[in-house]
Simulated scan of single mutants.
Amino acid sequence: MTENTVLPLINTAFEPGNARKAAESFADRDFREIAIAEFYYFTGQAQKCSDLVEIYIMSSRLELKLSACMLYVYSNLTLGNAKASERGLEIIRECLRKEMEAPTSERNTAYCVFAGYMGTVLLHLSTEELPDMKKYMSSLPQGLRIFAANVISHDLYLKGEYSRALGICDAALFSRKEIYPVGMIYLYCVTAMCEISLKNQAEAEKAILTAWKLAVKDELIEPFIELHGLLQGLLESCIRKENPEMYRKISDAVITFSRGWMAVHNPASDNPVTDALTTMEFSIAMLACRDWSNREIAEHIGVSLNTVKHYLTDIFNKLHVKKRDELKNFVLK
């Protein structure tokens, strides 16, 4: 059953392998176009997504406007167009400001808060001035509640509150009544991020493989592009050898997404990491600066100890650093 909501495809339950069919099932032409744009975005077709949603970013219908802006922000990050992403963020912030000053409905307020959080947390920007997302969860439909749980747990992950983040992920996954693949992929990815940060490798691998199983039939690769660095080598250890073609697509997109992300997140930085390191090097750098030993990194990623040493030497040379602690200035931002 489809519903004309913000991000209608995220809010739609469907069996893996039917994402395109679900996107095309909306009777309303405009919501169908937004759902197809979501499909383009999550399958790594950022340009098609951006082109399709641009006409809706100033729509008079709030659901269309917020959906278009969120997709416009993230598709243009993937394309490396930071200014376009900033434009989308500004429209979202203005919608939120107006709705909080003069609320139009409980659901519209929830939509605006949801969009504000999605455009802030996933870019690692401060949420201090935002309303509390948890207070508005009950006003969101089921699929968006699942995705909102992902955003809240991601925020807790960034604060180092891994156990609380895992609790929210588990509760959201347990309480669902149907399969909402997009939101569930993100929840399992956040679960994997938390578990690997706690060095629970087996649980992290289980979570990332569950996310991959939900994604692979529809080639929903964008979550793995967005979260590559935070997954800390899990794609390299679990996906690279088993599905080299899909891994290559992810790797090709990671660099441009990271450049766009850095331009929005820290525009004053002259930090060259997104240009200097390959995706494998970035994963190893993330693990190294989180106090993983060379042997632990080698076992986790599935390469030899000497290979890790060679990678680290190249990383240090490229970033002009001499010790692991200095890597934090580049990858833990």
Results as ranks from 00 to 15, higher is better:
129 E>M: 06
92 I>T: 02
97 R>S: 13
111 Y>A: 03
151 V>W: 07
56 Y>N: 03
159 K>Y: 08
159 K>D: 15
105 S>K: 10
69 C>F: 02
79 L>E: 00
176 R>V: 13
133 M>L: 15
129 E>V: 05
126 S>C: 08
145 R>P: 01
157 Y>L: 14
194 C>N: 15
183 G>H: 06
178 E>W: 09
106 E>D: 12
69 C>I: 01
144 L>C: 05
191 T>M: 14
107 R>A: 03
109 T>F: 03
147 F>T: 11
143 G>A: 02
64 L>Q: 07
46 A>C: 03
173 L>M: 15
104 T>L: 07
99 E>L: 07
71 L>F: 00
180 Y>P: 02
86 E>F: 05
68 A>T: 04
160 G>K: 07
95 C>N: 14
91 I>H: 02
85 S>M: 04
122 L>V: 09
190 V>K: 04
57 I>R: 14
68 A>R: 01
113 V>S: 13
60 S>W: 02
181 P>V: 13
177 K>E: 15
68 A>M: 04
167 G>T: 07
93 R>K: 14
61 R>W: 06
172 A>W: 10
132 D>H: 07
151 V>K: 07
147 F>I: 08
147 F>K: 08
114 F>Q: 06
48 K>H: 12
177 K>V: 07
52 L>V: 03
72 Y>R: 03
138 S>T: 11
128 E>K: 13
86 E>G: 05
175 S>V: 10
82 A>V: 08
75 S>W: 00
112 C>I: 11
70 M>R: 04
164 R>P: 01
75 S>P: 00
55 I>P: 01
56 Y>E: 07
130 L>E: 03
80 G>W: 01
185 I>S: 10
138 S>N: 11
146 I>D: 01
76 N>A: 03
134 K>W: 03
109 T>M: 12
161 E>S: 11
175 S>H: 13
172 A>L: 11
194 C>E: 15
194 C>S: 15
97 R>Y: 10
120 T>D: 08
103 P>V: 08
92 I>Q: 04
105 S>D: 11
102 A>T: 14
118 M>S: 10
76 N>R: 00
105 S>L: 07
